[in-house]
Amino acid sequence: MVDAAVMSRGRKVGAKRRKAVDPGFLLLPLLVLLLLVFVAPTLWFFFNSLRETGQSLPEVMRAIQSVLFSSTIRDAIIKTNWISLVVTLVALVIAYPIAYAMSRSRGLALTLMVICIVLPYFTSIIVRTYSWMVILGRNGLVNEVLLQLGLISSPLQLMYNTSGVVIGMTYVLLPYLVLTLYASMKSIDDRLLHAARSLGASGFYTFRRIYLPLTLHGVFSGCLIVFILSIGFFITPALMGGPQDMMIAMLIEREVELTLNWPLASIMSLFLLAITLVLYAVYYRFSNLQKMMG
């Protein structure tokens, strides 16, 4: 047998007495990146742009007030919220049955459904928007089919209006909701449903009193995420919307690109950021951050 003394040659016990370093410091490089490239530019942008609107704080506040209450901006705010709300609700109506079917399937059926959700989810937003432009355009698929069937005599205006925006945005944001709902449905213990049935509840009653309440948390966080992402949406409405579908993010882009009106852009950005952060705080309060992206 080997002697214990041999072992001590590799390690000198007691030689190193420095304290074990906590791995928390490994977060620092990431924090530096975010502070330098995310937080600092944003603050710098707000600070400098807002300074152009007035010398003192009251003046700046007045400028912000007059911008937010101007009719163009007010209309854009209302439009943005309206479109986001509709998109969220439409997405929920579509996502719920899909997520339900996924949670009740396995094998090939589940794999196929997952592919149908995940492939669009990871496809570039601009490509997804383009695909709907192909379908809904003046010479697009839908109009072609309807014309060929003789149901219409001239192409319908399916795009460059609010419904086009809603269709495009719903398509882009749907996977977030499906994945969140799927996660919450997957975690429901089947035995609860069996228990309800064994206690004499009908299928619908079980759904309404047991299943639905258990998924409400997922519904809430999923809808919140979709709404948050909707109000800041830019690409899809810019490409598929008409002149009357001006959302806040598009206004911001226009002020920067066309008129170089940085103060105006910053005021609207600040407003958009404020709403986003408030909603994010609500999300933070109610949901598990780690499940954010499904």
Binding site: M7, R11, V13, G14, A15, K16, R17, R18, K19, A20
Partner: peptide, 12 residues
Amino acid sequence: QDVVGLPAQHRN
């Protein structure tokens, strides 16, 4: 030998 403060990997 007092090992308080000694990291786990050196306690053997």
